[in-house]
């Protein structure tokens, strides 16, 4: 129960004593406000407080005063804000302000200095461009020369090929020469056959026997092996 919370009550009493500071003014708090967390009392649950009727004149007057106050405060704040802005713009507290003439003179001085710098660079650039142009010209000339030499070599090689072909064309078998060529071919048969022994000696011809015509000189070669190889190849 609320009334039995003696601790709170006694503490309150002490505080009261302290604040008043006089034993005569000692006052016991028996009733005080209900704590916030307690619900509405049962007896007051359905009580609807009556709304006080305000006098119309009084209301109008209060409204007028209120409006006046609001308006004045608003204009004051706006004025102060503008003043701060103006100060920020015109203040010289954090930067140096030059007169327009000084500024212009400074600007002209910088411009002239820059002009001199630009002139100097322009001269150097022109020299560089000239130099690069010459280098480029030399390079182009060299490359043209190289291309010319390459072309000449190519023509030379082509001429060589043509000359060789003309040379070769003398031995071509034409329709006129066909009979002669056939006769000659029949008269000189060519035998591409050959055989090998184990030492890698080549024996040209189909019917060549070791020691015969076309036989490589065998320094003490194994005769039997050669014979066998020949037999196998035949």
């Amino acid at each position: 129960m609320l009334r039995t919370t003696t601790g709170v009550l006694s503490r309150l009493t002490i505080n009261e004593t302290k604040t008043t500071g006089s034993a005569f003014a000692l006052e016991f708090v028996r009733w005080r406000r209900k704590p916030r967390w307690l619900p509405v009392a049962k007896s007051k649950l359905f009580r609807v407080p009556e709304r006080k009727q305000q006098n119309a004149d009084e209301k109008a007057e209060l409204m007028r005063l209120h409006n006046n106050y609001k308006l004045q405060m608003r204009s004051l704040r706006q004025y102060l804000r503008e003043e701060v802005l103006r100060l920020n713009v015109t203040t010289t507290a954090d930067h140096i302000v030059l007169t327009p003439e000084q500024e212009e003179a400074e600007f002209q001085r910088c411009m002239q200095e820059n002009e001199a710098w630009n002139q100097k660079i322009a001269v150097e650039r022109n020299e560089r461009l000239q130099r690069e142009l010459e280098e480029k010209a030399v390079e182009i000339r060299q490359r043209l020369e190289a291309a010319r030499i390459r072309e000449e070599e190519r023509l030379e090689r082509a001429d060589e090929v043509v000359r060789r072909e003309i040379e070769l064309s003398k031995s071509f078998i034409t329709r006129d020469k066909l009979d002669t060529a056939i006769e000659q071919a029949l008269a000189n048969p060519v035998d591409y056959n050959f055989s090998l022994d184990l030492k890698g000696n080549i024996y040209r011809g189909r019917n060549t026997v070791p020691g015969g015509k076309g036989t490589p000189t065998l320094g003490g070669a194994n005769e039997i092996e050669v014979q066998q190889t020949l037999k196998a190849s035949n």
Binding site: C110, M111, E113, N114, W117, N118, I121, A122, E124, R125, R128
Partner: peptide, 22 residues
């Protein structure tokens, strides 16, 4: 506006000049 040519100049020279001019 100010046009500052920086052809064939190295970084330090450019910065030096910019500090002087702008």
């Amino acid at each position: 506006d100010m046009l500052i040519d920086v052809d064939s100049r190295n970084r330090e020279e450019i910065i030096e000049h910019l500090c002087k001019v702008v």
